[in-house]
Design a protein around this nucleic acid. Structure first.
Length: 762
DNA sequence: CGTACTAGTCTTTTT
DNA sequence: GACTAGTACG
């Protein structure tokens, strides 16, 4: 079973009792060690799978580990808890949160919802958004929660601080709103679980007894609340195994405390420490570059990655004139490699510092008609139309959430405007009712006037949906709501450019519901809504289709690619101007760790690029090449320069022109110099559309595209991955794709887009 | 109450 | 440059 592990890995995988810290460098096979250890505990040590827990940060990591564990542990694998921090806490809270005064059917608020709540708080407290920003206060609240400070503790702590008074009051008001809406935000999930454990020792003890062996992945990213959660759970047996890499700690902005990993041995005195330094991913050259960059950081655990690989291609560096050229050349290079058979689209990933940088690439991909996929950005479930529909479901499920009810009360338009909503809210506040309860009593609110009827029928409609849920199911109800309210009809009628896209999103949402219902025959609306609340885009990344992936470096953590294009390597972009301006060394070190993560994503080939000028927020910037590039020793870099010739001083001479300009005046554009080369964005998209017949709407999605004729026609038997076999009833051609209607043998009639459904003729 | 236009903000990263 | 909230007007 443990074959193929190196000495260190073996030592880690066979450690049984007592605390263990595994310092796992990038690409050193830590997931493998973790899963092998689980298998070892079960099969060699005869530990009941029921007593094992593995915690990760992302659903993707959890899913991956689950899969690997399932494949090597035969019987009982399903009783191991393999979950994210958030999912773990939700599971515990759903069961016991009533012990600390919440309702077990709480809802979970995302960033958007938090913002809306804060807006309401500002209104109520009459804060001026120009004086303090909502986001600033939300950040302070989040920081406080990550430090386990509730609104009262926070108030006590800052009682003497006059400057914090507004934040203190806002926090209290915000928390009260959440409680009224029976809602928790992301940070509450962790914080309240810790609170629950401290308030109810018997509950904590039951979990301590159950989880005799605990494993935590990406330990360097834990914040104080998560640290405490783990500490409590592990306190009884101290069979705690944490895996992490201090050099890959990149989530300080989210409250991660790198000291949790650096001080592990101080907290757990008898902890065993194992370092995994052999890298199984990258070439020596890439590792040398990564080692050289990270060596500039202080206060890290010394380690140096090495590999047994002997092939060695240098790192390529390109300096381009502008962002557009950078994107075009990178896409071009990807196509060239593909033509030469050196690599496929799916071997390539483009990484950047900020999401906004994806745009130039997206345009280049559309122009060249190359399949691509952007990871991250706006979460599928955060899209307007999806959130609207979810708000309907949430209202049906549990109308305690005022936010949801208010979101949909006039969507689609029912003639219930802002004034009416304010009156309803006032009434609810005065009578201490929920917003929806106020709607139910619309008739009794004299100030409403004519609007009362409209509100009344809205409330009636929701109550009717409630009674229909049990026999129609989630999908049936959702379809009915869409039909009944005319939601899709309204989008169609709006004539907006992205109408078709939004409808397609809705279709996708419906099929997600369907899949859920198939997997959970005993459908449960609350459960479905919860599952949806905790997924992010990267979780849905399927690697079956061959396409180039684009993502931020943060999203790329934990992934690897044969060819990596690390773009936008300029001071002011990466490291970001925020970091440069803050002047704090610790901030720059975090940024450098991010550079380290970026470099170590590459397996075989790393291409680094920068651009002399770049459009940022509608303004042209001229930034020098990133200091992180300069930290890579010359001998590992090779500059191939397609259109411009690089001057060595632009990389290695600190007194270069660009740099001194940057010092004096970092972000002013120089008029006239580059502008002529720029083709305005909209024009270029139109041109692409005409030349390549790629529709504008396609930009959002990348892949689904009409590919000539379909391989099946009306009357043919076809197979669908989820729905099984069926007969094609009709095929309708739309501008972008074919809409195929199929009568499935088991699940009945379905209408779907051909590109999305991937039907096979049988 | 709904629409059309304007002004201001944003951009560092996300479970 | 893009999105959003706020305002004026029908």
């Amino acid at each position: 079973m443990l074959e193929g592990l190196n000495d260190k890995q073996y030592e880690a995988a066979t450690h049984v009792d007592g605390p263990l810290l595994i310092i796992a460098g990038a690409g050193s096979g830590k997931t493998r060690v973790l899963t092998q250890r689980i298998a070892y505990l079960i099969e060699e040590q005869e530990i009941n799978p029921y007593n094992i827990m593995a915690i990760t940060f992302t659903n993707k990591a959890a899913g991956e580990m689950r899969e690997r564990v399932d494949s090597i542990v035969g019987f009982g694998a399903e009783s191991i808890w393999v979950m994210t921090f958030h999912a773990t806490c939700v599971r515990i809270l759903r069961r016991y949160i009533d012990h600390i005064g919440y309702d077990n059917s709480f809802t979970i608020y995302d960033t958007d919802d938090m913002k809306s709540v804060m807006k309401g708080v500002f209104k109520k407290l009459q804060y001026d958004p120009k004086q303090i920003k909502e986001s600033t206060i939300l950040k302070e609240i989040s920081n406080a929660k990550n430090e386990l400070l509730g609104s009262n503790e926070f108030a006590a702590e800052n009682a003497a601080d006059f400057g914090k008074r507004k934040v203190v009051t806002a926090y209290q008001e915000y928390q009260e709103t959440l409680r009224k809406n029976n809602a928790l935000d992301f940070d509450d999930l962790i914080r309240l679980t810790v609170y629950l454990f401290k308030a109810c020792p018997e509950i904590l003890e039951s979990y301590q007894k159950r989880f005799r062996y605990i494993m935590v992945d990406e330990y360097q990213d834990t914040n104080t609340a998560q640290f405490e959660l783990i500490r409590l759970l592990a306190a009884k047996h101290e069979n705690l195994c944490v895996v992490g890499d201090d050099d890959q700690s990149i989530y300080k902005f989210r409250g991660a405390n790198i000291m949790n990993i650096l001080n592990f041995e101080k907290v757990y005195h008898d902890a065993k420490v194992i370092k995994l330094e052999q890298n199984y991913r990258s070439t020596q050259c890439i590792l040398d570059a990564a080692n050289a960059v990270i060596a500039n950081n202080t206060g890290r655990k010394q380690k140096a990655l090495w590999t047994a690989r002997t092939d060695n291609e240098p790192i390529h560096f390109h300096l381009y004139e502008n962002g557009r050229e950078e994107a075009a050349e990178i896409v071009d290079d990807i196509c060239r490699r593909k033509r030469h058979g050196e690599s496929d689209f799916s071997d390539c990933a483009i990484l950047y510092r900020t999401n906004a940088q994806s745009r130039e690439f997206e345009e280049a991909f559309v122009r060249e008609n190359v399949p691509y996929h952007i990871v991250g950005g706006i979460n599928f479930y955060a899209r307007k139309e999806i959130k609207d529909l979810l708000a309907y479901l949430k209202t049906v499920d549990n109308a305690q959430d005022d936010l949801c009810v208010r979101r949909i009360i006039n969507v689609p338009k029912r003639g219930i405007g802002a004034t009416t909503i304010t009156k309803l809210q006032d009434y609810a506040d005065n009578m201490d009712l929920s917003f929806f309860e106020a709607c139910n009593q619309a008739k009794n609110i004299p100030t409403l006037g004519k609007a009362a009827d409209k509100v009344e029928s809205f409330a009636l409609m929701i109550r009717r949906y409630r009674t229909e849920l049990s026999n129609k199911g989630i999908l049936g109800l959702m379809s009915e709501i869409i039909e009944n309210t005319g939601y899709v009809a309204e989008i169609k009628a709006s004539g907006e450019e992205d109408a078709e896209d939004r409808i397609e999103n809705i279709d996708e949402f419906l099929s997600k519901i369907q899949i859920y219902e198939e997997e959970h025959p005993e459908f449960n609306l609350s459960e479905f809504l919860e599952e949806v609340a905790l997924v992010s885009d990267i979780d849905n990344m399927d690697s079956e289709v061959s396409r180039v992936l684009l993502m931020t470096i943060h999203s790329a953590k934990g992934l690897e690619f044969s060819r990596v294009y690390l773009s936008g390597m300029e001071d002011g972009v990466f490291p970001s101007y925020m970091t440069i301006n803050s002047g704090k060394n610790e901030d720059m070190e975090e940024e450098r760790r991010l550079a380290y993560v970026a470099i170590t994503r590459a397996k075989d080939c790393l291409n680094i690029s920068a651009s002399r000028s770049r459009m940022v927020r509608g303004e042209t910037q001229y930034n020098p090449v990133s200091r992180f590039v300069k930290e890579i020793p010359k001998e590992f870099l090779e500059g191939e320069l397609p259109k411009t010739r690089i001057r060595e001083d632009e990389i290695y001479n600190d007194n270069s022109r660009a740099r001194s300009f940057f010092r004096e005046n970092p972000y002013t554009s120089q008029p006239g110099e580059q502008r002529d080369n720029f083709i305005p964005r909209k024009v270029s998209v139109k041109t692409a559309e005409q030349n390549n017949a790629v529709s504008f709407a396609q930009m959002k999605k990348g892949v689904p595209q009409k590919s000539g004729a379909l391989e099946y026609s009306v009357g043919d038997r076809v197979r669908h991955v989820k729905f099984g076999d069926g007969t094609v009833r009709s095929i309708e051609e739309t501008p972008r794709d074919y809409q195929v209607s199929v009568a499935f043998d088991t699940v009945g009639n379905k209408i779907m887009y051909a590109a999305f459904a991937k039907l096979m003729k049988i």
